[in-house]
């Protein structure tokens, strides 16, 4: 049962990731990325990371994906000569496609070879039946307090920087 769920969700994630790769329409790619994030969140649940799965859905789907779709819409070409039946098209050159596929496939073969020959021997208890929420909270507030604070500062700096960079953007004044 769990094995079937694992293969189903990993298949969902990989198939929608391949759809992003082959799709010419960026909006469709963003929606396929939504399916990929959901599949990855399900893999987190199957690995016993319930808090991470909820954080993944909230941060990626609720925040990052919405931002990406806004970005796609805001960088739309304003020219009228774009064919309206095929908006958001991405031009893909054959050379880039060749090098992209070559790099991806060769890296995948390399990683698969490494994983297949690594022969991991796990010691530790693997049966996590309880929630990881308490452990994460305690660890964040004790041994990982410094990275936690640095992450807070980083988020503040990113917020201020993004607001400053996107400020006063008036593309119509440039033409």
């Amino acid at each position: 049962m769990e094995l079937a769920a694992f293969y189903g969700f990993s298949g969902l994630a990989i198939v929608s990731a391949l759809f992003i790769l082959f799709s010419r329409n960026l909006i469709y790619a963003a929606f396929a990325l939504f399916l990929t994030f959901l599949g990855v969140a399900a893999l987190y649940v199957l690995a016993g990371a319930d808090f991470l799965a909820v954080a993944q859905i909230m941060v990626y789907v609720g925040g990052i994906l919405v931002l990406l779709i806004f970005g796609i819409m805001l960088t739309q070409k304003a020219e009228r000569d774009v064919i309206s039946s095929t908006p958001n098209q991405v031009i893909i050159s054959v050379k880039r496609q060749f090098w992209g596929f070559l790099t991806g496939i060769s890296l995948f073969c390399f990683l698969t070879y490494i994983i297949a020959t690594a022969n991991f021997t796990m010691t530790g208890e693997t049966n996590i039946s309880r929630s990881t929420l308490k452990t994460i909270g305690v660890e964040l507030m004790t041994s990982h307090l410094l990275p936690f604070e640095i992450a807070a500062i980083l988020l503040l700096v990113a917020l201020v920087g993004a607001a400053y960079l996107a400020l006063n953007r008036n593309p119509l004044s440039h033409d």
């Binding site: 990929t36 893909i92 496609q97």
Partner: peptide
């Protein structure tokens, strides 16, 4: 997933 992401970023 990593290799597909790399191929997307290049392509």
């Amino acid at each position: 997933l990593f290799c597909i992401g790399l191929a997307i970023a290049i392509t």
